[in-house]
Amino acid sequence: MDSCQPDEKLDLAGVPCPQNSARTLIKLEGMDSGAMLEVIIDDGEPVKNVPPSVEEEGHRVVEKVRTGDRWKILIRRREE
């Protein structure tokens, strides 16, 4: 089972698509292989678009938790 303690956090509440995906990917690129990122995004289009975008780049979405009209997404950075 994955450790769900994030190494870094990124609050993208209110940030529209595709800026939220872009900023998540930039953040992941600056992190160590295998590190965990917690991202907060809005419900609706963001939660539909951000997880597939990061998986497309080889990162792994470990967890998605809804809290009201926001989502907390845990992403493990891909191994290089």
Partner: peptide, 21 residues
């Protein structure tokens, strides 16, 4: 187009967001 939500849009948006940072 950096406003489009497909992968090509996300790729363009990454350039914008890097500059913004």
């Amino acid at each position: 187009n950096a406003s489009s939500i497909h992968q090509h849009g996300v790729n363009a948006a990454k350039h914008i967001e890097k500059a913004r940072n």
